[in-house]
Design a protein around this nucleic acid. Structure first.
Lengths: 146, 146
DNA sequence: GGAAATTCATTTGTACGCTAATGGTATGGG
DNA sequence: CCCATACCATTAGCGTACAAATGAATTTCC
């Protein structure tokens, strides 16, 4: 689309319109907002793991990683840190000695209830630049990219 | 929306509809696709830094970080690795002895041209689950969240 | 002209997120 | 029964991403 093919084909490529770049920016925005609402210093990733654990109940570490869409190396660190905060506990499985079963502590169960409220506020604030209709549409499109 | 207010208010909160979670998944998807197209082992972040450097030309490390929307600690690591690949070079500024000026090497300039093509393919593949109209809409909405 | 504020780059520490390698455990087929 | 295969967890290594602290250089403002 340039006058001559030799110079500045670069003008056709605009970084500010590339999904990858924009997704990174949107993630940055969300992370910043999440931090201001942070409950107990939780990160978005730790939040996800806690919610999934509440949904599914006690399960193996690997299984929790799959529920939360996290790598096995990632979920290990997340579980370690949640255990450090006293929100989660682990125990060896009797049936399968490879497994370490993860479950919420009472403190973790209490916290999850607070998280639901915080989560809604965080979502609202993140989507604030969009109209209600745009918000619904954006979520719908995002889900197609999961 | 539960039968009684005491049990399972959690059902009102669906993680799979929260922006933060979905953005994380979309980013995962994009990162995976990027990797399959990777030129010279570049990461999306390094890609962004190179393109911004090509757009703006020689500038200080901090300035490049602002152009690329990266933390000063992050851009340092990115510049270090790009220098390690021989795509970027740094020199001390004469006017301001605090600054280290970053610029593309000839190899870096050559690579940027390839990156534009790879970038388009990556964007196309990432957005493949959406129709053309949905793609345009999605980008439009994403830009509002920048 | 000099103190205060700003800017630049670096370093440290924490937290993802992935790959790859390792070793223990379980299971299914021959 | 045993071997191949699969699964589970851990570890090491690389690359973002941010906060906070440091030290050096520059600007600004009185």
């Amino acid at each position: 689309m340039t006058d001559d093919g030799t110079l500045k084909p670069s003008t056709a490529y605009v970084l500010d319109e590339q999904v990858g770049y924009l997704l990174r920016l949107a993630n940055q925005r969300h992370a910043t907002i999440f931090q201001t609402h942070a409950v107990d210093g939780l990160t978005p990733t730790q939040f996800t793991a806690l919610v999934r654990l509440a949904e599914h109940g006690k399960c193996s570490q690997n299984q929790l990683g799959r529920y939360a869409a996290m790598d096995i190396a990632t979920i290990k660190g997340v579980v370690d840190r949640l255990r450090g905060k006293g929100l989660v506990q682990t125990e060896a499985s009797q049936q399968d000695r490879r497994r370490s079963l993860v479950s919420l502590t009472p403190a973790g169960q209490d916290l999850v209830q607070d998280l639901y409220h915080a989560g809604e506020a965080i979502t609202d604030e993140t989507l604030a630049p969009l109209s209600p209709a745009e918000q619904r549409n954006f979520i719908k499109l995002l889900r197609k990219l999961g």
